[in-house]
């Protein structure tokens, strides 16, 4: 009995540490944004290093958000916060967060989203998915990312494509199944895709679940699609 009590304390402890870390990371990211905002390549030779710093901090933050969400799902303390959102505004918000970094690496972003499309979904978690995909694209895209949003057969489809090397085989849904990504043998935890597929499936409407698809678009780049009913 004592043992179990310790476990409960331990996991609550973990969650509260993660929470605290998030606060510090928040400061780190905000501060680096401020510093970067006031320096250019001419005035500040460390600009590339600072940018790298910010990128890494954001990566850690994304992972932490996902870990906290997974922790809650595991403790049955979790349901989606489904609300109706204007999708173009939602995409705009998410992109705003990522654009400066992508621009720094010379990656341009093109979006195509119907202006007045409204959909029901959990905005925090869905933003988590997209942040994660964009963060990967920062690393792997050559110089371009396309985000296309549409409504198809009762699903909201968010399609993100880049022009990099494409996904390795074990991350493709056609090969790895519904939850790609977790492959400890290749050293990739693929937490992002795992999280994405979990969150997608939690979105239900009229007996239909959400899902993700990953593919390689011909010879150029990763194709990620999120389907929310």
């Amino acid at each position: 009995m004592d043992q179990q009590k310790d476990n409960i304390h331990f996991s609550a402890f973990l969650a509260s540490i993660a929470h605290d870390m998030k606060n510090s990371l928040g400061m780190l990211i905000n501060t680096s944004e401020e510093v970067l905002g006031s320096c250019t390549a001419e005035t500040c030779p460390s600009q590339p290093l600072l940018t790298k710093l910010q990128y890494e901090a954001k990566r850690v933050n994304n992972n932490l958000v996902q870990l906290l969400a997974l922790y809650r799902m595991d403790h049955a303390r979790f349901t989606l916060n489904i609300a109706h959102h204007c999708v173009s505004e939602f995409i705009e918000d998410t992109i705003t967060q990522n654009k400066p970094l992508l621009a720094f690496r010379g990656i341009s972003l093109e979006t195509d989203c119907p202006e007045d499309l409204v959909w029901f979904f959990d905005a925090d978690l869905t933003a988590g998915i997209i942040n994660n995909i964009l963060n990967n694209a920062y690393r792997y895209a050559r110089d371009k990312i396309w985000i296309t949003v549409s409504e198809k057969d009762g699903y909201l489809v968010i399609h993100i494509r880049d022009n990099g090397q494409g996904y390795p085989e074990h991350m493709l849904t056609e090969k790895a199944g519904e939850t790609p990504g977790i492959s400890f043998s290749t050293g990739s935890t693929g937490l992002g895709l795992y999280f994405a597929s979990l969150v997608a499936r939690m979105h239900c409407n009229k007996g239909r679940e959400g899902f993700i698809r990953t593919s390689n678009c011909g010879d150029s780049g990763c194709c990620f699609s999120l389907y929310l009913p």
Binding site: K22, N23, L25, I29, E33, E89, E92, D93, T96, D124
Partner: peptide, 16 residues
């Protein structure tokens, strides 16, 4: 608004 948020996000959210 979930921390951390970028400056521009704060601006668009406020405006909205």
């Amino acid at each position: 608004l979930m921390k951390p948020f970028a400056r521009e996000v704060l601006r668009t959210r406020l405006e909205r």
